[in-house]
Design a binder for these strands. Structure first.
Length: 645
RNA sequence: GCCGGAGUAGCUCAGGGGUAGAGCAAUUCUCUCGUAAAGAAUAGGCCAGGGGUUCGAAUCCCCUCUCCGGCUCCA
């Protein structure tokens, strides 16, 4: 018997049974073998020194610097973490320790939380284990044997009992990995020995519920990260620093955009003049595009009687997310709105509708309030009061495909206009346990959404069972300047609310027909979107979005008059200008303008007064251009400041 | 909401039972300068809030609020 492999270059190779991944890798190349942390057979990762399973298949080598390679390193690092914790805290219970994006974690119960000093000791212990270069040895065994080994480990016992037979190894077996007497339940693969871990660092601790369910006991989680080498680890730590520098919670107050006064309570922001300008520009653009795409504007109040939320179903499904009731008179409770949909529905319902009225696209920048749990609030990205660029389109079933195309096109244009050129979509489908209406309607709706995505040619993944109870939806995630992904836009199909509110229109055949609703938010929450925009641009906005577009800096007091003239010329073409009349040095005034991230700085001195010129410097450019004719500078800046049409 | 950590001047931070400190920012004066920090002086605080312990609390204890890192949730 032999093992037949298809090598990465497409050639076939036969090896005797018992050959290991390492040996095959060596036959391809010594350097490749040295960089390997595991191999795959038909995409399934296998330990480097484990005999390859018959009958073979498509073979590839997993090197440390790949996503899969890193996840092997991280999984092994998690294993070493558990080993260190159990060595330092005998009797600790350990639960699960998977690799995650950029790192790994492991959950423990040591009867108390970990302290920062614990973390230091644990990391030191891990360094010891890594230095000892202990080999990882894989062993497949029966569940009974594994249960005996982990008899005093309640979480491991529970995992062994719940592992799906066939998912791990062959039949009813589970696998464990041993190194130097420490044994952990694990499907693998691992690196061959602990010494292969060259760049491991523990980051933080936190509480985490067993199996992610808050009804379960809370365990203590330790987070760490691991990379193929020191350089990659340092690059990662630097990436974290870069993200910290872009943090909108830091940049917002620094650039004087917004703040969260303690007096208002958690999750409630006030916008300062510069942030107000930023937001006005965003709202202007939103209204312009809504108009261009054929939406009408409506305005609705922030409060409604509880009965409305009863009909909409919010009190039944969403009460926990709503602020508590206000009792204004004996008969009625009022609630602040967490969503705008019922109000827009009432606009639709205000008179009888004909098929000739459809599609009816109603939009509003609607302020909503949601009682987010205190621990989840995160600057503008998760607030308790925010504004949705919300729209509700009422349409016939026949119009649905065209309407969905229009909505997606709108959303993508909106995102492009703010510099988000990379996005991916998620199509969330029906959850059989939480879905209204028959499956046929859902299938039709999901198919419409799928076709819409296909036609637009954007990448999407299916999010099985993640739909709202009223219908399937498309969520758009954008990738920002440093590669992070943010969920912003959403397009949702809704068959339920038209039902609950008994919406109808009169068809050409003179019958009453129920319309379908499309809920759509392009930015999602304006606050959240602006938070993402701030982080995307690191506060250095493109000129059309910058609250102050140009700083005019006179060299000395005698140039202030000319500076004022320059400022007036710029204002006349619609630019937002700041004239710096302070008595600081030129260097200091420029430093202040650059610190405030103004897109352009104009310096004017004697030569400029004499020749009607200015010195021009853009944010991000080290070099200024002196002696630019004022007329030329004005038209150039006006052109740079043009926003998306 | 839960588990940790934290809250001292506008910002960044030091101090740690006995009269509250620095740098930057602010204000005033001097300087009038060509591309990332001129000089001097002045002012600025219920040490998050409320209770306790103590002769005495910013400091020790308890509660609340707010923020940070996670869990959970989600636009």
């Amino acid at each position: 018997m032999s093992i037949e492999l298809i090598l990465p270059d497409g050639t076939k190779a036969e090896h005797p049974q018992g050959v290991t991944g390492r040996q095959v890798a060596e036959s391809i190349g010594a350097r490749l073998a040295a960089a390997a942390v595991a191999v795959t057979i038909d995409g399934v990762a296998v330990d480097l020194d484990r005999p390859l399973p018959a009958p073979g298949g498509e073979f590839s080598v997993v090197t440390a610097e790949t996503d899969l390679g890193r996840s092997v390193l991280r999984h092994s690092a998690a294993h070493v973490l558990a080993q260190a914790v159990l060595a330092l805290h005998p009797g600790a219970a350990f639960a699960i320790g998977p690799p995650i994006e950029d790192g790994f974690y492991y959950d423990f119960d040591i009867g108390r939380p970990f302290t920062p000093e614990d973390l230091e000791r644990i990391e030191a212990k891990m360094t010891e284990i890594i230095a000892a270069d202990q080999p990882f040895v894989r062993e497949a065994m029966s569940r009974d044997k594994a249960l005996a080994i982990f008899a005093d480990q309640p979480f491991k016992t529970e995992i062994i009992k719940s592992v799906d037979p066939g998912e791990v190894g062959a039949g009813d077996e589970v696998t464990v990995y041993r190194n130097n007497g420490f044994v952990d339940l694990c499907r693998g693969p691992h690196v061959t020995s602990t010494g292969r871990l060259r760049a491991v660092k523990l980051l933080r601790t936190s509480g985490a519920y067993w199996r992610g369910d808050e009804k379960n006991p809370q365990l203590q989680r330790i987070y760490g990260t691991a990379w193929e080498d020191r350089k990659a680890l340092d690059a990662y730590l630097q990436r974290l620093e870069e993200a910290e520098k872009r943090d909108h919670r830091k940049l917002g107050p620094d650039l004087d955009l917004f703040s969260f006064p303690h007096e208002l309570g958690s999750g409630l922001a006030v916008w300062h003049p510069k942030g107000g300008m930023l937001r006005k520009l965003l709202e202007d653009h939103s209204r312009k595009l809504h108009e261009a795409y054929g939406f009408d504007f409506v305005f609705t109040p922030h409060l409604a009687r509880a009965e409305l939320w009863q009909i909409s179903g919010h009190l039944e499904w969403y009460a926990e997310g709503m602020f508590p009731p206000m009792e204004l008179d004996a008969d009625h409770e009022y609630r602040v709105k967490p969503m705008n949909c019922p109000f827009h529905i009432l606009v639709y319902k205000s008179r009888a509708r004909s098929y000739r009225d459809l599609p009816m696209r109603l939009s509003e920048l609607g302020g909503v309030y949601r009682y987010e749990r205190s621990g989840t609030i995160h600057g503008l990205l998760r607030a308790r009061g925010f504004t949705q660029d919300d729209s509700h389109t009422f349409t016939t079933r026949e119009q649905l495909p065209a309407e969905l195309d229009l909505h997606l096109k709108f959303v993508l244009q909106w995102l492009r206009d703010f510099g988000f050129t990379e996005y991916k979509a998620e199509l969330s489908t029906r959850d059989p346990d939480k879905a209204m209406g028959g499956t046929a309607v859902w299938e039709e709706a999901t198919e419409y959404l799928r076709q819409t995505l296909e036609a637009a040619g954007i990448d999407y993944s299916i999010n099985e069972g993640d739909a709202a109870f009223y219908g399937p939806k498309i969520d758009i995630h954008v990738r920002d300047a440093i590669g992070r992904s943010w969920q912003v836009s959403t397009i949702q199909l809704d068959y339920l609310l038209p039902e609950r509110f008994e919406l109808e229109y009169i068809s050409a055949e003179n019958t009453a027909v129920r319309p379908v609703m499309i809920h759509c938010a392009k930015a999602g929450s304006l606050e959240r979107f602006l938070g993402v925009v701030v982080e995307h641009y690191a506060g250095a906005f493109p000129m059309w979005l910058a609250p102050i577009q140009v700083s005019v800096i006179p060299v000395a007091d005698r140039h202030i008059d000319y500076g004022g003239l320059v400022a007036e010329r710029l204002r006349a073409v619609g630019l937002r200008i700041e004239l710096d009349k302070s008595s600081e040095t030129v260097g200091e005034k420029i430093r202040q303008a650059l610190t405030a991230k103004h897109p352009a700085v104009l310096v004017v001195g004697d030569n400029d007064v004499e020749n009607s010129t200015v010195g021009v410097r853009y944010y991000g450019a080290d070099q200024e251009r002196r002696g630019v004719a004022l007329d030329e500078a004005v038209s150039e800046l006006a052109k740079v400041a043009e926003g998306p049409e």
